[in-house]
């Protein structure tokens, strides 16, 4: 009967130990900040991860026609130069790279290996953007984590499910399974002149700190940009009607394709959420920040550019508002209505 001793412990003491156990469990299991999450992040990168990351980096240099040597590799992978030299030796022995004095370049085998990794990475990024609710700033890191652990077959299945996407959510082309990739086009935003009109095709997702700030500013691939002023340390532009300015350093992270035909959108579009009950408007666009299932649902309901919507009822608690579109009433939350641009009927 020695199990009964537990009943003779003071209730206060038991209460306290119960609270302590809960606190310890919370400390270990808390998402992102907990011990377990920290531990799994701290785990050293395996040899395979290092190898694949370095190939990816070298390919990136080649694609952007930037020089690449041992020091820049060490810097990019955040490892010591000694470790980087060991890594290069390993890559060389596997005939993945060729060495020419200081310059490092990919061999054909190395290039196709790198393209495979990039394909996996970008397909998963596309998947995270369209089919999950993972934060925009975390797509890249999640894809970096996953690209070394999935098989090519699983990724191809995923690509087939999504209808073989050709662009990742940052606007980068996804290499084909055979390893072809189009030539880079467009110029970075800091090279544009006053009065020029362009469309964002790519936002560099590394380093994360800069990318996060660009996301916070509401910039995204597909957005129309009209340059209003170029100064020494500031580039001002109108992005989908919003005034915006960036330092050249930040602007260099955005690639733009020049557009000539369209009229620049200078005035800001109104949002569907601003429509009062009884008013009618025409849908102009759905923001690209509304992605995946949500976007498809809205389009299925008839929210497409050119269709007429009118706000008809407000829910008792105020938030979803019922909109009449194509003869049906659809409840849309204000969070999503903020992503739909409208043009009020005069």
């Amino acid at each position: 009967m020695n199990t009964l001793f537990i009943l003779s412990i003071q209730p206060g003491l038991l209460l306290l130990s119960g609270l302590i156990i809960i606190a310890i469990l919370a400390w270990i299991l808390w998402p992102q900040k907990g011990g377990l999450a920290r531990f799994s992040r701290m785990k050293a990168r395996s040899q395979r991860e290092l190898l694949e990351d370095s190939l990816k980096y070298m390919f990136d240099c080649e694609y952007r026609k930037a020089p690449c040597d041992m020091h820049s590799i060490a810097g990019n992978l955040d490892i010591s130069v000694d470790r980087a030299s060991l890594l290069l030796e390993h890559l060389f022995s596997k005939e993945l790279i060729t060495l020419d004095d200081q310059a490092v370049s990919l061999s054909d085998t190395g290039r196709s290996y790198a393209l495979r990794v990039i394909r996996v990475h970008r397909i998963w990024e596309r998947y995270f953007a369209d089919e999950t609710s993972i934060d925009q700033a975390d797509w890249h890191n999640e894809a970096c984590r996953i690209e070394h652990n999935v098989t090519m077959e699983d990724t191809e299945k995923l690509a087939a499910q999504m209808g073989h996407p050709v662009f990742d959510p940052h606007g980068d082309p996804i290499p084909t399974a055979e390893g072809t990739l189009p030539e880079p086009t467009g110029v970075t935003l800091n090279h544009l002149k006053e009065g020029q009109l362009g469309r964002v095709t790519h936002m560099e997702d590394e380093p994360k700190s800069i990318y996060e700030q660009l996301v916070v500013l509401g910039l995204y691939p597909g957005m129309q940009i009209y340059i209003t002023d170029v100064a020494e340390n500031k580039i001002s532009f109108v992005a989908d009607g919003d005034e915006c300015s960036l330092t050249p350093l930040f602007a260099a992270h955005i690639t733009v394709e020049l557009v000539s035909a369209k009229e620049p959108v200078v005035s800001k579009n109104e949002l569907l959420s601003s429509l009062q009950v009884g008013e009618e408007a025409e849908v102009v666009a759905i923001s690209p920040n509304c992605r995946g299932q949500q976007r498809r649902r809205l389009m299925d309901m008839g929210i497409v550019p050119g269709s007429l919507v009118s706000a008809v009822i407000k829910s008792a608690s105020g938030d979803p508002v019922g909109y009449r579109v194509l003869g049906t009433t659809v409840g849309i939350r204000s969070r999503e209505a903020d992503l739909i641009f409208i043009n009020r009927k005069k």
Binding site: P31, T132, S133, I134, G292, Q293, L298, I332
Partner: peptide
């Protein structure tokens, strides 16, 4: 369930 996909529209038939 943070990462699971989520979409909201509510049809009022």
């Amino acid at each position: 369930l943070r990462g699971e996909a989520s979409a909201f529209t509510l049809e009022l038939p």
